[in-house]
């Protein structure tokens, strides 16, 4: 007899309704392929078919004894678009989801984002963000409009700034240490 041992991560999902479950899977299928999925709730024929055609690794019965430390992983259901290129003058980028830019945004470039915005390079251009937060490092030349309000350049110090909208006011807080981007 041969026994093999695997270390795996398990994702526990409660099926509340067929449609919400399928929507969730569709959005996150790429990531979820790396996990064993522990399904609770009713597996309808449509769900069964989805699981089979997408080759999802899952189980409906899981009984782990011992130190059962339940790790809660919060998956925010939002798409993320990533731009890993310099955004140059004349470019006009419009994104409905969240956006992560892993480079600089040059003078003369414009970015419009409906979701949250993180830019790791220096921003010389124009940003229009309607999300809940922004994390940016801007030069004095930049123009930043957050939820329709232009941010006063003097608030944006020459370092990373977290700009958040807490429902009724916009808060700008410089981040002292530059975050390390893996």
């Amino acid at each position: 007899m041969k026994v093999k041992q695997y270390s795996i991560k398990v994702f526990e999902i409660n099926i509340e309704s067929q449609s919400s479950f399928l929507a969730f899977m569709d959005k996150n299928i790429i990531m979820l392929r790396h996990y064993l999925i522990y399904l609770k709730g009713e597996i309808t024929p449509a769900i069964q078919e989805y699981l089979d055609t997408n080759d999802v690794t899952y189980t409906t019965h899981l009984n782990l004894r011992g130190n059962k430390e339940q790790q809660e992983l919060i998956l925010k259901q939002s798409d993320l678009k990533i731009i890993d290129e310099i955004v140059r003058s004349g470019q006009d980028i419009r994104v409905e989801s969240d956006l992560l830019v892993l480079n600089r945004v040059n003078s003369g470039a414009k970015i419009y984002v409906e979701g949250n915005l993180i830019i790791t390079g220096i921003v010389d251009g124009m940003l229009f963000c309607n999300g809940d937060f922004m994390l940016v490092h801007t030069s004095p030349k930049a123009m930043i409009v957050f939820n329709g309000v232009e941010i006063d350049g003097s608030l944006l110090q020459n370092k990373f700034n977290k700009i958040i909208f807490n429902g009724d006011e916009i808060l700008v807080s410089p981040i002292e240490k530059e975050p390390k981007w893996a």
Binding site: E85, R88, S89, G90, Q91, N106, S107, G108
Partner: peptide, 16 residues
């Protein structure tokens, strides 16, 4: 000078 740099930046974007 800034105007030359900005125009070059735009030209590079078009090349790409």
């Amino acid at each position: 000078e800034v105007s030359s740099i900005r125009d070059a930046d735009k030209a590079i974007g078009i090349v790409d």
